[in-house]
Design a binder for these strands. Structure first.
Lengths: 203, 203, 203, 203
DNA sequence: GATGAATGAGTGTTCATTCAT
DNA sequence: GATGAATGAACACTCATTCAT
């Protein structure tokens, strides 16, 4: 593989990723991608075989890196509070780059629910098991009120993801511009932590 | 306008609503809508001018009724806790019917952010003002921890909407079938109330 | 179905038939067909669903009428000589109109041999049985030399079809123009009969 | 020209010939040819300029060798019967290797009838002249019935070529498998000779 | 009001061909 | 000589839209 090839391959994927996940063009056509990348439409087929295969490639890769990120947070010996605090950081700081990824995932999952299973291997199970144990300890110690693992995780995901997911709607409703919304999102780290543990985020 | 005319108009809108918001066919074609409604494709143009105009009409109407619903909850003399409790009820019970509406809204808003402003008139301002006052009283009385009105509302919306919005993803992650997920959603009423007020939902 | 619809449907089929079987454009594109018929390319899909379905329709219909023609020749009480004489007439006179049909059939058959079976139902068996009996009588009576039914039929088909099938090649080899070749073909009726029965065609 | 160059040139032509005439892939793409030959697609253009030029080259060469073969049969002092017997042998035995050549020729000729003239030089005239004389002698001697040279040659070609040409169709109609059809073809040598001379093939 | 027929613009994809190396 | 990258033209097909009736 020459350098040029790698660059073009990567360029196409980058462009697709940007259109799909950043700009929210869920149905971005090959023409749109080619125009944005400044290449010929046929090259997409040369490198990826078909629009769908490019699509799957980009989705899979993004999912992998995301899953790895999450796993690396939870698969440590740290306390639950530290883990959650990191999770919030990652989701709010990093995922600003691809605000539509979650949205995208939901739309696609609605069409082909069996696809996620390929993208999310058994790691999920292990993560849940770890968090489950730590959560039980917190509840037993009376540090947080009773809650099931499922609702705990969904609360966490909801509080972190929703403001990203629904950004265009919320930005309009709350009457915030780009900058104000960014500020709002950074404030949310404390707010989410507080909503989860009912106490202030340390330091 | 004859009765038949009204009926066909309404039938088309109903069908479009179902396909768009219930089944998640964001890109439902005029043919698909016509087939589902059992009418001729050209009639959609006869009544609505174009696919996009039908789309906007349906979206606007759904938004209006939703806004009205929300307003009627908040524009009373009830306590904040009762209002929030009703809000949770409405969002979780009623909005199960159109699970993809939120998702849809977000996707469309991403394309044309200026559109929402037409759909959400100045009512928004009045609602916020009312809730704002009540929220300040709660905080002042030490009944809930300090939180801005924006974060309070976003938390509430996140905890209610996210499980609906992300249903396909969560259903897969949590390994729940249709029935189990419905059960999970109904449990959430208590969970959300608790997360917001840090106390159990009365009765 | 309106008159216009039938006309357009028929027009498309006619045009396709002409391009496929008469002009030998085995790979005629939908554009070519549409241009030749003076209609929009998309209409072909409107009426036939796809290029292949149009193709199959036209092929099947042409085959049916041909099979019927052959059957009506052999399924009588006439003598073998009369039947063969008619067969020669039909193949040479009528099939001049679609000189590439046979060729076409062969090319397509090479790709999908299972297709012919659908087009040629069990009629074939009955025809062969009838001819078989009559042929045996001729041989037993010493009227023609010993020959199997298979070779007899293949000889007949070869002598009739080949000059049509290979028209472009033969026309060039034999140095004949359109008119001369047509004359040559009409002479062949006697020649074929003679080659089969080793005696002159009556009257 | 280096040895390697010659080898690659020849390899490409061989591969094309096989795909075109043996496997019947009339529309074989440059990619298909390159893959089959194990070379780069661009090399076809390097050596032959374009797909069409490769095509023409291969067709021309195949035609030349075929014409030479025929000429060498007829340009001897042997009797007509021996010549015809050899002709039948060559066409039936040898041409089994390229069953689609004839078919191919016909299809291509239909598109560009002027092409054959370049491929079939004045040899044709000489061959016909020789056979013509011998045929007249046979007729004069009452050894065969009256027939023109054109019909005689066309009968001969028809009886030999048609079973090869129409192999896929005939195989289906006659219900023969590969092996049975091969057997059938070998029987045809006697059958054709008999149909031409109305007597058994010697030895 | 309602329909089938017809169209033009656009989609993903294929392919022969060219070009830089 | 040989290769991978890149392109333009064409293909079958889809779709919203228009039109005549």
């Amino acid at each position: 593989m020459s350098l040029g090839q790698l660059e073009t391959r990567e360029l196409i994927k980058e462009t697709a990723r940007r259109l799909f996940f950043q700009k929210g063009h869920v149905k971005a056509t090959t023409q749109e991608i080619a125009d944005e990348a400044g290449i010929n439409r046929a090259l997409i087929h040369y490198y990826f075989g078909s629009r769908d295969l490019l699509f799957e490639k980009v989705l899979a890769e993004t999912m992998w890196s995301r899953t790895d990120e999450i796993e690396s947070i939870f698969a440590t010996n740290d306390s639950l509070r530290i883990k959650i605090s990191r999770f919030i950081d990652v989701f709010i700081d990093n995922h600003i780059d691809f605000p539509y990824l979650e949205n995208f995932l939901i739309t696609e999952m609605a069409k082909a629910p069996e696809r996620l299973k390929q993208l999310q291997p058994d790691k999920r199970g292990r993560i849940t098991a770890i968090v489950y144990r730590q959560l039980e300890e917190e509840i037993a110690a009376g540090l947080i009120g009773y809650i099931t693992i499922e609702h705990f995780m969904v609360n966490l995901m909801a509080l972190c993801n929703y403001p990203l997911l629904a950004m265009p709607v919320l930005q309009t409703i709350l009457g915030m511009d780009e900058k104000a919304y960014r500020e709002f999102l950074s404030e949310r780290k404390k707010v989410v932590y507080r909503a989860i543990f009912n106490e202030d985020l340390p330091n």
